[in-house]
Nucleic acid binder design. Structure first.
Lengths: 160, 160
DNA sequence: CTTAATGCAAAGGCTTTGCAGAGAC
DNA sequence: GTCTCTGCAAAGCCTTTGCATTAAG
């Protein structure tokens, strides 16, 4: 009866989307400062990878991307930096895979398709989507955001 | 600059909701069989706790509930059983807290408020909610479900 | 007797943390 | 010189797994 293991979650869209743009150090430096973040070398490196690619990244993904040539940023710093970025509203945390957190540099309103087999995330532009009939928040509560995750499965993926 | 630790996620609504009902062994036994699950003593115990309370439970919550008098179910069995129940569609897995998975015995269509400070989940009845404008699924993909999580924060919770 | 389920303890994976060393002003 | 950041290694937490034991028919 063994239950299936948690999803593989291959993640990391290496393919840059159409709006990909390589940010300069100065550009991301300004973005960091705008969010009250001291733009150190490591933080700038991480932000450059995130914003130049615009995908969905696990901490491990970011670690690899930043260190693909020579080691430049430690794992601890990657984790701390991603947490800091999310806290300051520079990127978004995605809680959708039970085994790890993903980070999304796309801060425009959008939702996600989630392939439960591969763990792959795909954006859904929120502009066309309307959600009506949600009850009011509990008294005094402040909205942080609405996450919509459309979980789906692609059948008959060849087993080899 | 230290980032805040992950949410406390106290979880576990001990208060049974209005539709609470204490299920008998036979009743949950039938539910398990209906889902192709062999109703062993441990599985029945776990299912009784889940369905009689109807909250949102971490594996740890379930472990405590089932073993509050004398130890009856091991942690491994709790994990395996919750995974099995979810796989067979008896309960639902909620991926909403970055630190752990919650399980929800409420299988009627519904969404969730998530208090990002306390980690507490509250149901949103899906009947009144309409979501329109979602793009079609990728070709060949099969919908598994739509999760909506309204993240919110209650300000000014007394610090002591 | 054979198959399935349980439980313990160990292993595994992701993330955080303590603390020393390096860097910035 | 002081304050901040980084990085290593260790610790922590949740979850899964291996395997021997027990239960079920």
């Amino acid at each position: 009866m063994q239950r299936a293991p948690f999803n593989a979650a291959v993640s990391m869209d290496v393919t840059p989307p159409m709006d990909a743009k390589t940010y300069t150090h100065d550009e991301v430096g300004a973005m960091l400062r705008d969010h009250g973040i001291n733009p150190t070398a490591q933080r700038v490196e991480i932000a450059r990878e995130l914003f130049s690619r615009k995908g969905h990244f696990s901490a491990e993904d970011v670690f690899s991307l930043v260190n693909n040539e020579q080691a430049q940023v430690s794992k601890a710093t990657v984790y701390n930096t991603l947490g800091l970025f999310a806290e300051r509203g520079l990127i978004r945390q995605l809680i959708v895979d039970p085994t790890k957190v993903f980070y999304d540099p796309n801060m425009t309103p959008h939702y996600h398709f989630y392939d439960v087999v591969t763990g792959k995330l795909t954006d859904i532009n929120a502009e066309a989507v309307r959600i009506t009939g949600l009850p009011p928040l509990p008294a005094g509560a402040q909205m942080e955001g609405v996450d919509v995750i459309v979980r789906m499965r692609r059948p008959n993926i060849e087993a080899g």
